[in-house]
Design a protein around this nucleic acid. Structure first.
Lengths: 230, 230
DNA sequence: CGTATTATTTATCGAATGATAATTAAAGGA
DNA sequence: TCCTTTAATTATCATTCGATAAATAATACG
């Protein structure tokens, strides 16, 4: 709430009394990034710096005191969303062999979707991917390493298949299909505002159950082909 | 090939001899749309009309003789991609009960992904969804009606479950998960340029097999719950 | 209280944007 | 061949954009 007032002044002739409150740089920095996340999620990265300044109740050149360029501001937005909101406990929960695989998967996807199924997360993610590939490629690499490989290994173990060796690309791709299916539910709901007829929890449960009920036979076939060719 | 020449003139001082070839409006229209698809896929809809004109070897105001505004040009691009490239035979193939469900699904997804797994299709689709929701919502509604409901019905039949009545939302959502999983493979490959380790055909085969091997038990559970609550 | 620091403002630049009006010249028909 | 039509051009306007320089005033500190 630092710096309320804005445009709702009686539409007189004179400039609206330049309110000038002096804030700590750290707080301003955080405030700027937070509002930038909001604005970029709505409009995209073409959103003007003037629009952002107006929403902050601040003049436009002030932004350039905190961020050397608009691209630096965008970089801070990426950091905020895709680094700060990542939870290491996701991986930890998935490799916790004391719980059934089904519980682990459902618990993970319920928490994960709670984090990413927001307009801010999803829309900025899509904007980023269309602007340049590095952010999304790096994020996808992290997801594969920290989420999908653990899921693949845990699933394979649950079917009594070899647990030690690293999962094959084709096995990991099976987990990607589950991940993508759930992800796309969020895109339809949040980004495309498609009228959803099944609630999120039921979707996750059914997707995970279909995956676990079906992936065993495919993994077995892949394992046999692997051992035959070896 | 109407109007070659462009910027590769000897970098003299004088204007590059205004080449003025007169073309039929219909051809120009198609040519403009085709190049607009190309440009918008690369840069997004913020791409300048001057850039487009330059790529066409034409002056910028000429665009406004064929399209009253940039938004009309964008609308023509949507028409070209999401209407003209839709194949009614997709639905026909999926409801063809003379072939096994597995063959139908694999054949459909191989042909469908061949159509949509291009930078033009995918990137413009994502751009469109971030610009406004109507295009994508309408497309998703078409996919659900023409593709996913047939898939759901055919799958249910293949498990000996009731074939007549319309599929429940939860059943359709199961097919959406498959659709989304495959769709997201294309986004990773084409848009994010993620290094793919499994080729498209294998991915489709494994995704469909996992779906068919797993969806039966979930559909049966849904059917039982349905009949119990009735 | 008075002075130094710096957060914030005002003013402005240059480039790029979508769009319009007026002008020019290529093609088709008599 | 001339004349009508209209495709395509040149010239230009009003906005908006990211960014910079200089002026101003709120705070911290002595």
């Amino acid at each position: 709430m630092a710096g309320r007032s804005s445009t709702s002044l009686a539409a007189g002739a004179k400039p609206p009394a330049p309110r000038r409150t002096r804030n700590k740089p750290e707080e301003r920095h955080r405030e700027f990034v937070r509002k930038a996340v909001e604005l970029f999620a709505e409009v995209g990265f073409e959103a003007g710096t003037r629009e952002l300044a107006q929403r902050l109740g601040v003049t436009q050149p002030l932004l350039y005191r905190y961020f050397p360029s608009k691209d630096d501001l965008i970089a801070a937005v990426y950091q905020e969303i895709y680094v700060n909101r990542w939870k290491p406990e996701w991986r930890e929960g998935l490799i916790d062999e004391s719980r059934p695989i089904r519980d682990r998967l459902i618990a993970f996807y319920e928490d994960y979707t709670e984090t990413i199924f927001t307009p801010e997360w999803l829309r900025i993610y899509l904007f980023a991917g269309l602007r340049g590939v590095d952010i999304n490629r790096r994020y996808a690499a992290t997801v594969e390493a920290e989420i999908l490989r653990p899921i693949t290994v845990a699933t394979r173990k649950s079917f009594g298949l070899g647990g030690g060796d690293p999962p094959t690309p084709e096995e990991v791709e099976l987990s990607w299909t589950l991940q993508g299916g759930i992800f796309y539910y969020g895109v339809r709901e949040i980004v495309y505002r498609f009228p959803m007829t099944v609630d999120r929890a039921a979707m996750i449960r059914n997707a995970v159950d279909t995956f676990l009920a079906g992936v065993g036979s495919v993994m077995k076939r892949l394992a046999e082909r692997e051992s035959n060719s070896a």
